Simulated scan of single mutants.
Amino acid sequence: MVTPVSALPSRPTYWCEATAQPTTGGNTCWLGSYMARSPRLALRWFTCRVRDVTDQLDPHYAAPGRHWLTNDAEHERARTFLAEGEMYTLTLHDDTTRYVLSARPTGTTR
């Protein structure tokens, strides 16, 4: 017997996005996005983007992002948020720009 695709179990997906927003107004700049198939994969993409952003910041402004990169408890918190259907966001900034990184469940896909 063949099982129709509509009867197969659905899997959640997670939309991950990074943006740069000027603090003085102006247009938001899209830095990248990714559709992950699990909270773990979403966090992997998220971690790479946090590293990319912090690499571009002066050391003083990069410190919170560098701390986040080594904070295993916060990574577990992020995975838990996503697995429970909640959005996870991290905001970094310097004098002129706010960097917003987010991951959120999008529902299911077949």
Results as ranks from 00 to 15, higher is better:
residue 12 P to L: 03
residue 12 P to K: 10
residue 12 P to I: 00
residue 13 T to R: 13
residue 13 T to S: 11
residue 13 T to I: 08
residue 15 W to R: 09
residue 15 W to Y: 12
residue 15 W to H: 10
residue 16 C to K: 00
residue 17 E to F: 04
residue 17 E to S: 09
residue 20 A to T: 07
residue 20 A to I: 10
residue 20 A to M: 04
residue 21 Q to S: 14
residue 22 P to A: 08
residue 23 T to C: 14
residue 23 T to I: 15
residue 24 T to G: 12
residue 24 T to F: 15
residue 25 G to V: 04
residue 25 G to H: 06
residue 25 G to R: 10
residue 25 G to L: 10
residue 26 G to R: 12
residue 26 G to Q: 02
residue 29 C to Q: 14
residue 30 W to N: 09
residue 31 L to H: 04
residue 31 L to N: 06
residue 32 G to T: 12
residue 32 G to Q: 05
residue 33 S to V: 08
residue 34 Y to C: 15
residue 38 S to W: 06
residue 39 P to A: 07
residue 39 P to C: 03
residue 39 P to E: 01
residue 40 R to G: 14
residue 43 L to K: 00
residue 44 R to K: 07
residue 45 W to H: 03
residue 45 W to F: 01
residue 46 F to C: 02
residue 46 F to N: 03
residue 46 F to I: 04
residue 47 T to A: 06
residue 48 C to W: 10
residue 52 D to I: 01
residue 54 T to K: 01
residue 54 T to C: 11
residue 56 Q to N: 09
residue 56 Q to G: 13
residue 57 L to I: 11
residue 57 L to M: 10
residue 57 L to C: 12
residue 60 H to S: 08
residue 60 H to N: 07
residue 61 Y to V: 01
residue 62 A to F: 06
residue 62 A to G: 02
residue 66 R to V: 13
residue 66 R to E: 09
residue 67 H to P: 04
residue 67 H to V: 09
